[in-house]
Nucleic acid binder design. Structure first.
Length: 219
DNA sequence: CGTCGGATAATCT
DNA sequence: GATTATCCGACGA
């Protein structure tokens, strides 16, 4: 399923307008047999959607500030899904850019302004970075908890998946890259990440790095 | 381009 | 209480 999704289009229709991306990078997570999968240790409230019917969005919140979206791809009871890691914006670029304005805690959260309060030019966020990475993709498409469990195969859903504009699957004529998944600890040697070769919107590979443990009193 | 640390909170042990 | 399917700015090469 994962490489088959490359080149397909994910679009989110909201009151603000529609943003669409052509998927350029995905990762497969194989539930019960995959220690890197959220479903590896069984069903919980968080991963319940993974155990549901295929073609639905599994949206989770992580690192205290980011959302990521998966598409389930197996029958009820088989918790397998594909994480949508990156895409190329093909519609709603201005809206996506507005959603990608960032700020730091405690600072003014005004779209179009930077931390100093200066107007941010339209070129501040390169188009290639609008959905380059799973949390960035969710930002650009305004995907959050509301979309968890949604049927992305129903064309009438706000968040839906459709064949690519090229009309072909498997990213058409383009070569597909294969490699280990980003940021996972268990199962780091399993090559279940797929991307469109030489596409600038594919995120940079990063190995999982154990974070320093919470500082004890070091005196 | 690469590495590093901070932000920040749901989830699980 | 530890961990995390991340992002971003700062800094150095």
């Amino acid at each position: 399923m994962a490489p088959a999704l490359l080149g397909c289009v994910l679009e989110h229709d909201t009151a603000a307008g529609l943003v669409a991306v052509e998927l350029t990078e995905v990762e497969a997570y194989a539930g019960a047999v995959d220690p890197a999968s959220h479903a590896f240790r069984g069903r919980t409230n968080r991963n319940a959607v993974m155990f549901g019917p295929p073609g639905h969005a599994y949206v989770y919140f992580t690192y205290g500030m980011h959302f990521c979206v998966n598409v389930t791809c197996q029958p009820v009871g088989v918790p397998e899904a594909v994480l949508l890691r990156a895409g190329r914006v093909i519609a709603g670029e201005a809206l996506a850019r507005g959603r990608r304005v960032r700020w730091r805690p405690g600072e003014i959260k005004t779209p179009g302004m930077n931390e100093a309060g200066d107007a941010v030019p339209a070129t501040a966020m390169p188009v290639r970075d609008l959905a380059r990475g799973p949390a960035r993709l969710c930002q650009a498409l305004a995907i959050d908890r509301e979309q968890n469990g949604g049927d992305v195969c129903d064309p009438s859903s706000p968040l839906r998946l459709r064949p690519g504009d090229g009309g072909t699957r498997m990213a058409g004529e383009r070569a597909i890259g294969v490699g280990p998944r980003v940021g996972v600890t268990a199962g780091a040697d399993t090559a279940w990440r797929f991307w469109i070769a030489n596409d600038p919107t594919v995120s940079v590979y990063r190995q999982s790095k154990p974070r320093a443990r919470k500082q004890q009193d070091s005196r």
